[in-house]
Amino acid sequence: MSPLTLQHRRAHNLLLMQKLLSTRDASSPFTLVLDSVEQTAGPLARAWVRGAKASKTDVVFVAYESLKAPGDVSGFVKARGRDAEAVRGEIARVVVGSRRTLLILDSLYPLIMNPHPSLPLSSFLSSLTSPTTSLLAIYHTDVPLPSPSSTTTYAPTPLTLLRYLATTVLTTHSFSQTLARKRAAEKSRSGPLFGREEGKEGVLVGMGANDSRGCVIEMEYRRKSGRGIEEWFFLPELHRDDRIVLLDDHELYRRSDANEGTLEADGLGAESATFELELTEKQRRDREGVVLPYFDAQKGEGGGGGRILYDMGVEDDFDEEDEI
């Protein structure tokens, strides 16, 4: 990748991700986070809360799975076992309309499994957002859903509907597993499988899941114009001093090819790594000194037609009729 391209990504995509984490200017009214047991959305949610508090934004946590409120939240709504209408009413009482607020739903699974008859999932999520309120919802991709009924056979799946509604889609990946897949791709090997994808009995979580160093975030941001921006980031744990960076800038993710590093250090481009088409001065002199076969035939004047040069030997029988 050229240095200018990488510099452009640092200047724009990294700034965009930092803007999303700080919930400034309502950059993303609805952010969908896709996680799994291989990499949970916990580190990303904590980073989002920390960025919201730094920008003086209220954080309201809607708990379907959590038993207690996480730190640095200004409101906590217990939603387990309650229908969508009651949860929406409780959120309306906690949220202050004049203040910027971040709503975090720790799981969308109960809303998908137990939909309200008069309040579909799309309507429920749309009613939670406003010019001063943004939504961050977590969807567990490894939790199976029941087969659709005959009445909803042609309806979109819940994940398809959520991806359509979301203005930003963030997918979390294990850092250790991402490095393993990259090493396999560099050696032209098939990528390794982890967890349930391995197909082994009793294996639910793969090696390297929920890496303590941090997590990898795959971002898909939709602009108002319809143009999408895709990027990969590395988010370190909160106890580290490092900030979020592009995945390509992480020292462990960079290519370890010594030849490529030497070329970059010498300032040589991709053209210098291939063969040279131009001749050196010595090669040019040697080429001019080469006598080509049948070189004598090229000394004749033009227009005389082709000629065959042949030296007769003593064993040849010359006939005057053969002379032209």
Results as ranks from 00 to 15, higher is better:
Gly306Val: 05
Lys182Phe: 06
Arg213Val: 09
Gly300Ser: 12
Val37Phe: 01
Leu145Met: 15
Glu65Asn: 12
Glu186Lys: 13
Ser188Arg: 15
Arg99Met: 07
Thr133Asp: 02
Gln39Ile: 01
Arg287Thr: 11
Asp106Pro: 03
Lys182Met: 14
Lys200Ala: 15
Leu44Trp: 05
Arg100Gln: 12
Phe61Val: 00
Pro120Cys: 06
Lys282His: 11
Ser98Leu: 06
Ser98Asp: 11
Gly214Ala: 08
Thr178His: 12
Phe124Arg: 02
Ile324Ser: 05
Arg240Thr: 07
Pro29Asn: 02
Arg222Met: 13
Phe175Ala: 12
Leu4Ala: 15
Thr57Leu: 02
Leu238Lys: 08
Phe295Thr: 04
Ser147Val: 13
Arg46Ala: 07
Thr274Met: 05
Glu65Pro: 00
Arg163Phe: 04
Ala52Val: 01
Gly304Trp: 10
Glu85Cys: 03
Tyr221Lys: 04
His173Phe: 10
Gly214Leu: 05
Glu231Asn: 12
Gly228Met: 14
Phe61Leu: 02
Asp106Asn: 05
Ile308Gln: 07
Thr172Ser: 12
Thr262Ala: 14
Ile244Leu: 09
Gly226Ile: 11
Leu268Gln: 10
Gly51Gln: 02
Val49Ile: 15
Leu135Ser: 05
Arg10Met: 09
Ser107Ala: 15
Leu67His: 11
Pro156Val: 10
Gly206Cys: 07
Arg99Tyr: 05
Ser27Glu: 07
Glu301Ile: 08
Ala92His: 06
Ile324His: 09
Ala185Trp: 06
Leu170Met: 15
His140Lys: 15
Thr101Cys: 13
Ser55Ala: 14
Arg284Gly: 00
Thr160His: 12
Glu220Gly: 02
Leu292Trp: 11
Leu161Ile: 06
Asp248Arg: 02
Arg93Tyr: 03
Ala209Tyr: 09
Asp286Leu: 15
Glu271Pro: 00
Leu204Gln: 14
Leu277Asn: 08
Lys282Ala: 15
Thr167Glu: 13
Ser22Glu: 07
Leu111Ile: 13
Ser107Cys: 09
Met312Lys: 05
Gly71Thr: 06
Gly191Arg: 15
Leu268Asn: 09
